[in-house]
Design a protein around this nucleic acid. Sequence first.
DNA 1: CCAACCATGTAATAAGTTACATGATTCA
DNA 2: TGAATCATGTAACTTATTACATGGTTGG
Lengths: 183, 183
Amino acid sequence: MLEGKVEVMSLRHAVLGLLADRPASGYDLMKLFDTSLANVWAATQSQVYGELGKLSDTGLVTVTAEGPRGRKEYAITEAGEAELRQWLTGTPPTPARRSDSLLRVFFLGRLTRLEAVTYLESEASRAATRRSALQELEGAVDWDEGPLSVYGRIVLEYGMRQSVMHEEWARWAAEQIGSPDTP
Amino acid sequence: MLEGKVEVMSLRHAVLGLLADRPASGYDLMKLFDTSLANVWAATQSQVYGELGKLSDTGLVTVTAEGPRGRKEYAITEAGEAELRQWLTGTPPTPARRSDSLLRVFFLGRLTRLEAVTYLESEASRAATRRSALQELEGAVDWDEGPLSVYGRIVLEYGMRQSVMHEEWARWAAEQIGSPDTP
DNA sequence: CCAACCATGTAATAAGTTACATGATTCA
DNA sequence: TGAATCATGTAACTTATTACATGGTTGG
């Protein structure tokens, strides 16, 4: 039984998706990764420049202009658009498989009750902080009518609901642990 | 300005945490990774055996027994317990930085409205499916009074709240896109 | 006796992180 | 003229995935 390669590699699609909106240099893309995509798909500079290289080798993007300081502007090609589309419509997303903070909860039994409650409460406050950061972001961004704005807002809404849920859950959990039947 | 190494590497702590509950072989651990930890911290067999090797090299675990078929049973050491405790109490969890499914949402503007709604609706139903799987799991596990059970339940509750939130959000998002002001 | 399961490992590859190296341009 | 910013890249290392290789043990 032969198994086909599992198509993962979302970094590639993140780059393609950004370039589908407008041409950009590696430097430009990094700014987008650090702002818009920061909570959705993090990437390092090494990765971005490396991926641009591979992408242009395989013809999914091309260099459309060269500017000062060796700046290279990349644009998505038709093959790249096809690849992006195929990824969006043809491959089911893989669910998140790892969570640092939940893993800790799993092992909270190694701590005293008080320490565990402290952890859960700090989870709650981290979630609250995150929520206000997102709210601030919502105010700061100029939400034009472009498609990236429409869906960017929807992603942001996810983040806010997520933070609320996380905070409520953490408070609930702290209460479960904090009011003991058995010590 | 010197930067210290950022302590990450949660696989190590997942292994330590499981061994803190009771001694186990690599094979035993794999079963735990595939069941209890499947949605929290996924690991492959290669990783687990490799990590057990490193862990015993550095004295955080030891081989406590050898059984048939070359089975080696590992137990956590005091140094290992200390490391686990330090991780739990002394290092803040790093928030999730990547989500395949949200990344797609970001780029849904490349598709037709109908395709985008279809994606969001399938997200909703994936979330619903996940939720019933977790509910079934809740029924199937025997929740004794051990600490791993207590916190395992709390983690499970997170998963359920998460699925509910995800489904509601996806339906809400589909509605946003599906009832257009502008086509 | 043979299928299912127990059990450990290695090799090759891919993906991600961190640090370093280099230099051009702008603008106050 | 010097600091901030623009801009690209490489090297070394760690972490994760996939596939392969090997064989022992148990129970029907």
